[in-house]
Design a binder for these strands. Structure first.
Lengths: 156, 156
DNA sequence: AATAATATTGAATATTTATGCAAATATAGG
DNA sequence: CCTATATTTGCATAAATATTCAATATTATT
């Protein structure tokens, strides 16, 4: 278990190394691990770094690996949290259950790529969605359906 | 200057795109930018992403670009907390780092006296700025430059 | 233990990203 | 305007990284 040859112990070693050294490529990491008696190929490291959610951060004139910070946790919940959708011109007001607005707005922001969606502003139970033009509503909601099934049914 | 062909406006567009879309490779970003009328090669994007300190985050079974230094965005002084500015008619949508919308909107409210700025509404990471008329955008941003140097460069 | 189902890995390779270099574009100083 | 200096960019390619595939090892199930 605590053996120095398990995958888990290697992952731990990787975390340790990248947090206290400036490592900028997987090949460098291969060498660093070898010094510690852990032999592994670049292919495996690529998978390890993905598993650890390690990111390569631009720093100075080079790069350095770093343990990733957890942003973008997509909110789940479907259209149940949505009470109604009402539109006027290029402004759309979405009413939600108390506290749901932020999560739903974030989901929309993260998943709708249509450039006619300029942005969303969320309060606690209301979202204002700003479109580039009124006629884009249908296509924006179509796309939102993919991540929030049933959302179109809420349109008044 | 505010031309949609400057490096700065391209950087703003990139920030905006990756913060609201799942982009997993530079080639995808090339295509997304082309949809917006911005033509650029992968080589330049590689440099742009480095300049923006964008990181590629392992997410699910793939990857996604993300602005790396979001947590230490300084609110005071510069426009660093601002990701992009996009306008349609008399409505302007300003995207910011998470949590920064309120502070930036307040700064604008307190410092821009132009009466064509009717008001601002801030969520967590998005500001809606309402102008009396579309043509006032330039003069309002000019005034905002005094308290938020560099803000004009964020205009897509 | 034997078998099946899962997980891990390396080798080779495909894909993606970074960069040297020259051309083009902008910026500054006469 | 002209010339010098610095930026920005694309092209070609080097470098780095991700993934396919087959083999091996691990774990679970009977």
């Amino acid at each position: 278990m605590g053996d120095s040859k398990t995958r888990d112990s290697r992952l731990a070693a990787i975390s340790s190394i990248i947090s206290s050294n400036r490592i900028g490529s997987q090949e460098k990491l291969v060498r660093k691990l070898k010094e510690k008696g852990i032999e592994v190929t670049q292919a495996t490291l690529s998978r390890d770094l993905k598993a650890l959610q390690v990111v390569k951060v631009p720093v100075g004139d080079g790069y350095r690996y770093s343990i990733g910070h957890r942003h973008n946790i997509p909110a789940r919940g479907g259209a149940d949290g949505i009470i109604s959708i009402d539109a006027s011109g290029n402004l759309v007001v979405i009413k939600t259950g108390p506290g749901f607005a932020g999560a739903i707005a974030l989901t929309i922001d993260n998943n709708v790529t249509n450039r006619n969606l300029m942005g969303t502003i969320a309060g606690d139970d209301t979202i204002l969605m700003i479109l580039r033009k009124a006629s884009a509503l249908s296509e924006v909601l179509d796309e939102a359906e993919h991540c929030i099934p049933g959302i179109k049914n809420k349109l008044i």
